[in-house]
Simulated scan of single mutants.
Amino acid sequence: MAASGKKNNILKVLLIIVLIIGLVAAWLGYQAFMSPSIATSEDYFYVHTDEPYESVIKRIEDEGIVKNPTYFKYVAKSMDLQNGIKPGRYKLSKDLSNRRFIGNLRGGYQEAVPFRFQNLRLKENFAGALGKSFEADSTTFLNILNNETIAEKYGFNKDNFFSMFIPNTYEIYWNTKPEEIIDRFASEYKKFWNADRKAKAAALDMTPEQVSVLASIVKGEALHVDEMPEIAGLYINRLKRGMLLQADPTVIFANNDFTIRRVLNRHLTIDNPYNTYRYKGLPPGPIMMPSIASIDAVLNYNHHDYIYMCAKDDFSGYHNFAKTVAEHQINARKFQQALDARNIKK
């Protein structure tokens, strides 16, 4: 009887030990797989294309992405992450467990980049914005933007290729190949130039590319969107009459000096096809990235007889418009006096 009781006690102890071991194992399993794991305050973790698995694991540890790297490595091994990791931009949150994080890395469940751009002056600015937002660097994008063959593929040339990119917000995955990103913009450009816009361009005897070039000048002149159709009408009047556009923003572009606040005679002498004081018609390409508002302002321009304009002397950003040289000279004199009063010499 005593031996039997002793045996039962031993069994109870063994059961308790097994239970404790099971509870500890369950707790460790929960901590490793299911409990919140993210330690960093960073919003995203990036896995580069063709990045070695060991490099990814080391960065996760070195950058303090997870609370317990040992747990993470164990779960990664058990989920065979080494044979299934995918490049991308992965959202991090404090409630993210190792299991979910690794599942995202394995499944490629990344979050797209909401890429928004506007008010960009040069190709270099656009390439820089792309390089900051996506995996490929700015040099790669700039080479594409300056590539004549690629431009021709989409129906443009190197000078007017910049007008294919319609400012907006685009959802694009971070590791998308540069060529595919350009394809996406080309697709959006085709959607933007719908039948209605094409018909309005044709009524102006212009191609969409030419409308975009004129729209870039309108955008360069206008500080206020509500004045864009008026400015567009003025330049269309000059084009119809065979007059030089004489647009100051084109002169600034031609001189490649965007610090100019006062266009002087010496700026007008530059021999450059973008200098509309010397070359008649539209310049070869946009002087900046045209906005949707400026494109639509050209397509829906105000009909009037103005062929001259000058910034108002109150520096409001609006313009005085004129039909004759005499009227324009009065407006110009007022503005020049206002510049002198503020000691703006260049």
Rank of each mutant, 00 (worst) to 15 (best):
Q82L: 13
Y277G: 01
T276D: 00
I150R: 14
Y189C: 02
T139G: 09
V66G: 07
K7V: 10
A186I: 06
M288L: 14
K7I: 08
I102A: 01
G107T: 10
A201S: 13
Y46T: 05
K158Y: 02
N194K: 13
T49Q: 13
L105G: 07
E63M: 15
T139W: 04
T269H: 07
I260G: 07
L223I: 07
Y154W: 09
S35I: 05
Y306A: 00
S4Q: 11
Y235K: 10
Y301Q: 09
K153H: 12
W193K: 09
D62Y: 07
L282C: 02
F165Y: 05
Y30G: 04
M1Y: 07
G29V: 07
P69F: 03
E51Y: 08
K280S: 02
A201T: 13
R241H: 07
K323D: 01
E152V: 04
G88A: 12
E230Q: 11
Y74R: 10
P249L: 00
Y318R: 15
E111W: 06
E61R: 13
S97I: 13
F258A: 00
A254L: 01
F165A: 06
Y277S: 01
M34V: 08
T40A: 11
G29S: 08
E54K: 15
N265S: 08
L19W: 04
K77T: 14
K346W: 15
T324H: 10
F253Q: 01
F315I: 10
H304W: 13
M288P: 00
Y274L: 01
Y74P: 00
Y71A: 12
G22C: 08
N157Q: 02
L23V: 11
A195G: 11
G88I: 13
S294L: 09
L204C: 09
L223E: 14
L14K: 05
G220L: 06
F315W: 08
A297L: 07
L23A: 14
S291Q: 02
S133N: 13
N302I: 03
A195E: 15
R342W: 04
I231S: 12
R184W: 02
I20R: 02
K123W: 01
L223Y: 08
T259D: 12
A341Y: 10
R197Q: 10
A3S: 10
I252W: 08
G84A: 08
D271K: 10
K190H: 09
F335R: 11
K200Q: 09
F115V: 11
L130R: 03
K323W: 05
M79Q: 14
A26I: 03
Q118R: 14
I65F: 02
A322P: 01
L11I: 15
K280L: 00
N157W: 03
A127W: 06
K73F: 09
Y277N: 01
